[in-house]
Design a protein around this nucleic acid. Structure first.
Lengths: 150, 150
DNA sequence: CGCGAACATGACGTTCACGTAAACTAGGGA
DNA sequence: TCCCTAGTTTACGTGAACGTCATGTTCGCG
């Protein structure tokens, strides 16, 4: 068993393994439009992925996990990723129209800004929670120091 | 409509409203043991709560939201809260056995430490994600600066 | 060419965290 | 006392995010 298809590409099982999930989840994400619905299907009909797909899936799971986004909400994020992909495609396909480039870049930036705002809000809430618990902990520790018998 | 029962106590509707949720959720949490299963039921069978219950519910929802804990996992947290409640009870009921006090305090501290470790891990992951996105954003902005036509 | 492991599709099952409906009771102002 | 709102329990329904099973196809080493 080679586990890797020719061309350094991955089949769904390997993608799932490297992304820390299952093939079922990959297919489900594809069904929801979180992954390209036709990722290079040579002959046999088996899906083939690249390393960037691994990163993409991991990114999705990370956003879902850390921000508590639903898969539907992740759809909006995917748009940003797609813009990034388009950007890279246009880069590697030679220099294109500067106006078009600006458009793509500007869009990508606003998407990133949106995600960053979500993250900062979360981080703030988390910090507040941490402060609360640390305050309580300090109180408990203080009481322990006052309590005889240690 | 008074909305508040005698004694400054709250009925389930008001508790839910103040905690930012619904009566159904309150009953469900009680069923799961996240709330005391018999909160002072005078005669009529209506549940009655106090201000501290509001805080307790809000706390549960905050932990769930920010740490992504399941309701089952929240059960462990509830133990900590209960320990805290016991502690306060023993305080207000006069000074009790110091050894017992130390026991409760130590337990409360370890519970807080556990929650804090979860929070710090989350905060770290969130910070890493934020760094990633900010790096990307900087790259996009840099490209924008290099792209003519603005 | 054979064969077992992995993949494809479709459909049904499952868990969590509640929502919602039904049928009845309690509270309290007019 | 009447009556409306809000509460009670029981039970079934729901959406999200997959798991699992059945059935058939493909891959690639021996």
């Amino acid at each position: 068993m080679t586990a890797t298809a020719p061309g350094g590409l991955l089949r769904i099982g390997e993608l799932a393994r490297r992304a820390g999930t299952t093939p079922r989840t990959i297919r489900y994400y594809e069904e929801l439009g979180l992954l390209p619905n036709a990722p290079a299907r040579p002959a046999g009909g088996h899906r083939l992925y690249g390393e960037d797909d691994v990163l993409h899936v991991r990114e999705l799971m990370r956003l879902r996990e850390l921000l508590g986004l639903s898969l539907e909400e992740l759809g909006a994020v995917v748009e940003a990723e797609e813009a990034r992909a388009m950007l890279r495609a246009e880069f590697e396909g030679g220099v294109s129209d500067p106006a078009r480039l600006r458009e793509i870049l500007t869009q990508a930036r606003s998407h990133l800004d949106l995600q960053l705002s979500l993250i900062r809000r979360r981080a703030g809430e988390l910090a507040a929670l941490q402060d609360d618990l640390e305050t309580r902990r300090a109180r408990v520790v203080g009481l322990l120091a006052e309590t005889p018998g240690g």
